[in-house]
Design a protein around this nucleic acid. Sequence first.
DNA 1: GCGGGGCAGCGTGTATGCACGAACGCGCAG
DNA 2: CTGCGCGTTCGTGCATACACGCTGCCCCGC
Lengths: 230, 230
Amino acid sequence: MPRRIASTAPPPRPTRGEAIAASLAEDIVAGRLKPGTPLDELGLARAYGSSRTPVREALRQLAPTGLVQVAPRRGAVVAIPDPQQLGEMFLVMAELEAMAAALAALAMTPEQRRGLERQHGAMAAMVRAGDVAAYRAANVTFHHLLYLGAHNGYLGEIATATRRRLAPFRAAQLEAPDRLRRSHEEHGAIVTAIQRGDAAAAAAQIRTHIGLTERTWEAMARALRQPSAA
Amino acid sequence: MPRRIASTAPPPRPTRGEAIAASLAEDIVAGRLKPGTPLDELGLARAYGSSRTPVREALRQLAPTGLVQVAPRRGAVVAIPDPQQLGEMFLVMAELEAMAAALAALAMTPEQRRGLERQHGAMAAMVRAGDVAAYRAANVTFHHLLYLGAHNGYLGEIATATRRRLAPFRAAQLEAPDRLRRSHEEHGAIVTAIQRGDAAAAAAQIRTHIGLTERTWEAMARALRQPSAA
DNA sequence: GCGGGGCAGCGTGTATGCACGAACGCGCAG
DNA sequence: CTGCGCGTTCGTGCATACACGCTGCCCCGC
């Protein structure tokens, strides 16, 4: 391979700004930084033991990810979750994942299929143990395997970005023990469809998994038609 | 509307970094800056009559859009078009537009439907006149109307970003006069499906319009399955 | 008592200086 | 003649300094 520069992955020694950006992103995704929290450049600089410059780079780097909102000359705050936009993002994410599953059903290599099966099996144990934290982490891996199986790096990029941006608002989603079991069942249906090479079924199953069926989609669309009623 | 901060649009007086970013982006999209061109910070600073700082901000701002690639400690260059990734992006864009068309078919307001129809009609004149430049500009507007009609700002965001990122490589696509006419015909089919409220048909038509039918999709996927043959 | 204008404090936008790291070319050894 | 090691040079990463714009408060006028 002739040395390919990944568009979002500079693997070499991260610069200080990137380190700060990663740290901030993790804090936001994990919910340690609550929406609306002002991100003072000088304060953050002191906190990270650096000057304002890397902090500024970090904030400007985080802005396009949607995790922070920056207003020119007015500073940056942890992104505030506009409920409408949140719904929009869920809808888009469902379709992105559906596309990934469809592609994976067609394009996954035998090794990747085995890997997916293995991951799914490992998650069964976590369900039995009721280990939500482990399942949550494994769930991320599971969906990443789908992206890899789709053999579409760009799709993986935006899907991952969307998923991450929604992460803070899905934190409690798996808390209910029954939801854990159902999630795993849905994964099973997805895996089955993919192994069968049935792209349409895989897409349909994952739409269900995200929790937005065709019906709710249309309902949302219809509701959006008269926003004047708000 | 209770003052919503757009995630990528700071409308107030743009800062110098943003101005430079916009200028660079335009130069790249228009093809005036060719892929691989090194973007020297100091040189750009002199060219824009500012210091390195705003230039740095501009470059870091452009990096996530994919128009430039920056390697830590090694500088930035105008993004190089990896053919495989290009194909991936076309595929994703087709699906994003399909989704937008489907949503638009369901959710467009009567006013928006009239606006779409009007835009389509105006473009007919450009086809007759063979005015490629005008058609290209109107085409962007046409697709933006679709995004607006979908009532999904997030979808519009990433679709616009993808479209812009592909723009430099579609420059000559409409040059053939026949392509102009066919493009307009395809638009007609899309508009018809949308006006009928037929989401599935609208999606299918726009997939055709982007030039990637279900068949080529599967073919690409199949081809991707054996990347070892490269 | 209440609303509007000015003032002060603060934080960001921009400029500049310094130091580390990387790319390039030369000279030397094999 | 070719391959390798080293020094030089360029450019980026980070720190610091300065100035403008914004925000909130206080005071004054009505």
